[in-house]
Design a protein around this nucleic acid. Structure first.
Length: 937
RNA sequence: GAGACUGUAGCUCAGUUGGUUUAGAGCAUUACCUUGACAGGGUAGGGGUCGGGGGUUCGAAUCCCUCCAGUCUCACCA
């Protein structure tokens, strides 16, 4: 069969993926092999594939395919999560477009819509993963809200509650007014934003009590005014005395008036600074620092909240920073976590002035029904009009926004469910710190440590319907937590007697945070709460591949869940991928429009091209700057391999080579290939162990492009029109086959295709299921010699190029006779190889420098190439001098080391010996060069 | 405010416990070659005082200190 002229990625992909599926290669059942398990970070069920998914799923697929080829029972479990906030928002929006309000629907009706939506769009992303070549066990596809997973989520909730590690409490929470749900701390993103610090003055309420000092001043001013009037110059006044009295008195009056104004301000007014003037209607105190001298006189006093004229106490609390703002703080316990704490300490009233939707409520008294940000401007205007706005100071401060909706988070007092994290965090922290679970890269241990150390309770209830409804039932102020309503009823009856009926119990309306289901993922996908089933075989999983951005959301919590319910870690290794950025280093985002269409890329460059592109730019852990060019390079790599296949398959095969010399050359090349293969396999194994997959990718790229195609195939390529010998042909096919196996995990499609083209295969014989080769022994001396011959060839090519000789023009060459040179050319095929590759018509030993030649050193040998043209003596001299200088400099540095007694005494023997060899080499080369130079003079 | 990380060729990065030629790769670039697998090719070359300064050491891109520049994470300063 004739091979296609060009490699067709699309055709290949459409051929092999279904074939692998039919053969059930992706499926895994427990057996007596070692398990290699990976659970997919479940993407949002209604999401679409983006670059981040491409990256981390490519990595997972590479690891899984490699493990499978290593003879392990590889199991990659796919699935999706229900993404409660995001999905609910999408469904709500869609309903609104149809003119349906969520509030008008019952929970059941709404959930029906949500399930319809999920069924329609759900799992699309998993179909897209197949295009990438992902070898997931699709029969195991799980969903965080399917029956098996839901059952476990509920069980976990009940279990934690019964163990006292879960509680319901009234706390200051992060409220998302847009999604109208509470959020966990991790779902709030803080960033600095420009705003203002409003300086507002509150009137001090002295309860009718007057200031003696002010009264005294006031009286004085009155007197003075009268005097000033008396001395006011007019027609009758005469003399300088009157005039000067008038001036000094009126100056004094001015001073006193100013003093009065300042004293009056200080006595009657108190200025505070706030970012949120719209919350003053919820103020229930003003706080100052107990040791602030500016405010000591205010002990026991009260202040009047502007606009609504509420009298609130002035309290003293050392939370207040004296040097921030004005040193005085308005206290609004309902709308600020710190104020809430202060409120608790001072038993302050909590007045909640903002409704769930972010609009002011009737408690605010003014601007009711206006959104908080609009209200901010309105209140500011009101305050300005009423003379309470002292000044506006531009201010940059941290603002918390909802990760999902982007809405500014509103602190709010609310009754919610929490996991008591301190009670489950300890083993999870230790596991990572002691490397029982190993992080790649290591630096994330730190991040993890900091977070775990200061861990705060996890708010898990959400005011949403799309999710697992909280299994808590309420009756007469009591809470009954059970896996189902009947069990809850039993609990209630045990407490309140048999008269309690199911209808009397009211189940909590809220749903659970999505992460409360995904943190069970490594065992819930195997229905693994209880042991005895498959979970015993597959758990703990081998490695988790995920972005570092969800280290707290997901990774840390999975570790905790693993220890809590399975008594051990959920995964042995964690490989954190970086974020995919564009080539300018910007985050990929919809608004920037810099995020390439993932499927479009596959369309353009083939799945293998894209996989190569992703891998060649992804150092472990670092962010990767994605450039389409790398995919292009990947696609070109496929073409290169395809062309190599065409070359080999195009050869005519004979029993023997055209000459015995060529057979020797081919045998030598085969030996070299074998050695290099062992060499690279050793590197690949160690790089796989440390997840340096971009190294593996690049090493293979260079090896196949350079060593295999550039050298090996060029060496064995038969002369034009001649056949190749059968042995060499088979070797070449075998090497190629091995290379396809080695590359398969990274580029599965092209390797499968070429692997099949290389030999006739039986049905069910496939590259993806073949065994990954193992490294053999490496003969370092041999490899070094081969490098020397390659170097010699290169140098002869260089001479040709410099002298503008054609690459095929035959040349005569000589080598300086010496023991080492003899040894070198004793290697079978070495001489013939050099002659073939450098197009030499002859290669002979010589004792003296032949006429008309230029020379060079390769390894420790001196070579001469005869040129039938006049040699540019000056240029030659310059070239040799340059090399001589380099060698001399080099020798100096080596000599310096060796003449240093402390080096010789302290450095390891191997290092010293190495230096001695370098020295000897350098001395020999310098001698040769000097001799050549002398000849030219 | 606290902490972490990074700084090596035009770009993106390797450089694995300090010693394998006085620093490597891919891409880009330059010159040349190219009817014999491959212009998505071949051959060769240029390009870096390893952010600056100081120190430890026989020896530093690698360890320590300091400064500079950048990135990120965490944190309740109104």
């Amino acid at each position: 069969m004739k091979l296609a002229d060009r490699y067709n990625a699309k055709e290949t992909e459409e051929k092999w993926y279904p074939h692998w599926m039919e053969q059930k290669y992706f499926a895994s059942k427990p057996d007596d092999r070692e398990a290699f398990t990976v659970v997919i970070p479940p993407p949002n069920v209604t999401g679409i594939l983006h670059m981040g998914h491409m990256l981390n799923n490519t990595i997972q697929d590479i690891l899984i395919r490699k493990a499978r080829m290593d003879g392990k029972n590889a199991c990659w479990v796919p699935g999706t999560d229900h993404a409660s906030i995001a999905t609910e928002a999408k469904v709500v929006r869609k309903l609104r477009e149809q003119g349906i309000k969520k509030g008008d629907l019952t929970r059941e009706a709404f959930l029906k819509h949500a399930w319809d939506w999920t069924d329609e769009y759900g799992g699309k992303i998993l179909m897209q993963l197949r295009k990438l070549g992902a070898s997931c066990d699709w029969d195991r596809t799980a969903f965080t809200m399917d029956e098996v997973r839901s059952k476990q989520v509920i069980k976990v909730f009940v279990d934690l509650y019964n163990k006292g590690k879960l509680y319901r409490g009234l706390r200051m929470v992060n409220w998302d007014p847009q999604a109208q749900t509470v959020l966990s701390n991790e779902e709030v993103l803080h960033s600095d934003e420009d705003s203002f610090l409003y300086h507002l003055r509150y009137k001090i309420d002295h309860n009718g009590e007057e200031s003696a000092e002010l009264n005294r001043l006031s009286r004085k001013i009155k007197q003075l005014k009268a005097e000033v009037k008396y001395y006011k110059p007019n027609a009758k006044s005469k003399g300088t005395y009157a005039k000067s009295s008038y001036h000094s008195l009126s100056n004094l009056l001015k001073k006193l008036e100013a003093e009065y104004a300042a004293k009056e301000e200080a006595y009657n007014w108190l200025t505070i600074a706030t970012k949120r003037p719209e919350t003053i209607m919820g103020d229930t105190a003003i706080a100052v620092h107990p040791e602030d001298p500016r405010y000591t006189h205010l002990k026991g006093k009260r202040a009047i909240v502007p606009l609504i004229n509420r009298s609130v106490p002035i309290i003293f609390d050392d939370y207040v920073e004296m040097d921030f703002g004005t040193g005085a703080l308005k206290v609004t316990p309902a709308h600020d976590p710190n104020d809430y704490e202060i409120g608790l300490r001072h038993k302050l009233e909590v007045i909640d002035t903002i409704a769930d939707d972010g609009k002011l409520n009737e408690k605010a008294q003014i601007h009711i029904g206006i959104d908080r940000f609009e209200a901010r401007d309105l209140v500011k205007n009101d305050l300005e009009t009423a003379g309470h706005l002292v000044r506006l100071e531009p201010y940059k401060g941290s603002i918390g926004r909802s990760e999902r909706t982007g809405a500014v988070v509103e602190p709010k007092l609310s009754l919610q469910w929490y996991v008591d994290m301190k009670k489950i965090a300890a083993p999870a922290l230790e596991a990572v710190m002691t490397d029982e679970i190993e992080f790649f890269p290591k630096k994330y241990k730190n991040t993890y440590h900091t977070w775990m150390d200061g861990i705060r309770d996890w708010c898990i209830s959400r005011q949403l319907w799309w999710g697992h409804q909280i299994p808590a039932w309420y009756y007469k102020g009591e809470t009954f937590v059970a896996t189902n309503a009947d069990d809850a009823l039993k609990l209630a009856q045990a407490k309140f007697g048999k008269d309690v009926k199911l209808a009397d119990l009211k189940q909590d309306e809220d749903a659970l945070d999505t992460w409360f289901s995904s943190w069970l993922w490594p065992f819930s996908v195997f229905d693994g709460m209880e042991s005895g089933g498959e979970v015993d075989y597959y758990y703990p999983t081998s490695v988790l591949v995920t972005g570092w951005d969800i280290i707290f959301f997901w990774v840390a919590r999975m570790v905790m869940a693993g220890y809590e319910w399975k008594g051990t870690f959920p995964f042995k290794d964690v490989y954190f991928t970086g974020m995919v950025r564009d080539k300018q280093g910007r985050k990929m985002s919809k608004s920037l429009g810099n995020s390439p269409d993932a499927l479009g890329l596959i369309e353009d460059y083939g799945a293998d091209g894209v996989r190569f592109g992703m891998m060649s730019c992804s150092p472990a852990g670092g962010d990767l700057l994605f450039d389409k060019k790398l995919c292009e390079q990947g696609a070109a790599f496929c073409t290169k391999m395809w062309n190599a296949l065409k070359l080999i398959k195009g050869w005519e095969v004979a029993d023997k080579a055209v000459s015995p010399d060529l057979e020797k050359v081919n045998a030598l090349a085969a030996k070299w290939m074998e050695q290099r293969l062992s060499n690279i396999l050793t590197d690949i194994e160690s790089n796989f162990k440390t997840y340096r997959l971009s190294e593996v990718t690049m090493d293979l790229y260079k090896f196949i492009f350079g060593d295999f195609c550039g050298w090996y195939l060029e060496i064995i390529k038969p002369p034009y029109g001649s056949p190749i010998d059968k042995a060499t042909y088979n070797q070449a096919i075998n090497f190629f086959e091995t290379l396809m196996t080695v590359l398969h995990p990274i580029m599965p499609f092209v390797t499968e295709e070429i692997w099949h083209q290389l030999k006739d295969r039986k049905h069910g014989e496939d590259c993806m299921m073949s065994q990954y080769p193992k490294a053999g022994k490496v003969d370092a001396a041999f490899l070094k010699n081969f490098e020397t011959v390659k170097d010699t060839i290169t140098k002869i090519r260089e001479i040709r190029q410099k002298n503008q000789l054609k690459s095929y023009e035959p040349l005569k060459a000589f080598v300086q006779e010496s023991a080492s040179a003899k040894g070198f050319f004793d290697i079978d095929g070495m001489k013939e190889l050099l002659q073939k590759m450098a197009a030499l018509e002859s290669l002979d030993f010589t004792k003296a420098e032949p006429e008309n030649t230029v020379n060079f050193i390769s390894g420790t040998e001196k070579f001469y190439v005869e040129l039938n043209l006049t040699i540019d003596v000056a240029a030659e001299k310059e070239r040799i001098s340059k090399e001589l200088d380099y060698m001399k400099g080099f020798l100096v540095s080596v000599d310096k080391k060796l003449s240093n007694e402390r080096f010789v005494n302290n450095a390891p023997a191997k290092v010293v010996e190495n230096e001695r060899n370098k020295q000897a080499d350098a001395v020999a080369k310098i001698a040769i060069l000097e001799e050549s130079l002398a000849k030219l003079n």
